[in-house]
């Protein structure tokens, strides 16, 4: 068995292979691999004795799950209400332009993934962009370009 599935098994066993723990198990798998591949989903379904329609229902319902690989650098723009009234849409436009990505897209070289999030709880900084956990308050187009350059 591959390393990947052994890791998935380890996660599933951690929850006693309980059907009810499905969401918790998927969260851990997502955390481990940054996405949920078809292979891991099939394996999880078989281990828990759940049909695939249920797994796809769950994984496409909750926003945190990703069915495609995510970029090495996670870029999020907060579109919570506080950031929105302070101009989050303009910031999102600038970031989109700078990364040449639409929200929820990953670049072809898997370098960046752009996401929007609803409130990061640092409304005082708003509008906020977060790159790999680093917070930036309302960067201009030039500042965004610098960040894009700096990322490997």
């Amino acid at each position: 068995m591959s390393y990947l599935l052994a890791k998935v098994d380890q996660i599933i066993d951690g929850y006693g292979a309980e059907k009810e723990a499905l969401v918790q198990i998927l969260l851990d798998i997502q955390h481990e691999f940054r996405w949920l591949s078809r292979e891991t989903l099939l394996h999880t379904a078989a281990r828990l004795g759940l049909p695939m329609n249920h797994l796809y229902n769950v994984t496409t319902f909750y926003k945190h799950f990703s069915l495609v690989p995510q970029g090495r650098h996670a870029v999020s723009v907060c579109v919570g209400t506080a950031c929105h009234v302070r101009g989050a849409m303009r910031l999102l436009d600038r970031v989109s332009q700078g990364l040449r990505l639409s929200p929820d897209e990953t670049s072809a070289d898997e370098k960046f993934s752009l996401k929007t999030v609803s409130c990061l709880g640092c409304c005082a900084l708003g509008p906020v962009m977060v790159v790999d956990g680093k917070y930036m308050s309302n960067p201009t187009s030039n500042e965004i370009a610098v960040i894009v350059e700096e990322c490997e």
């Binding site: 049909p51 329609n53 249920h54 229902n57």
Partner: peptide, 26 residues
């Protein structure tokens, strides 16, 4: 799903993009 237990059909997505899909293997 509930009467036949066949799980050939299912929902994906939520909100305005929710839809019914079919699982060919099933």
């Amino acid at each position: 799903r509930d009467v036949k237990g066949a799980n050939v059909l299912g929902f994906v997505g939520r909100g305005t993009i929710r839809q019914v899909v079919i699982f060919p293997n099933q």
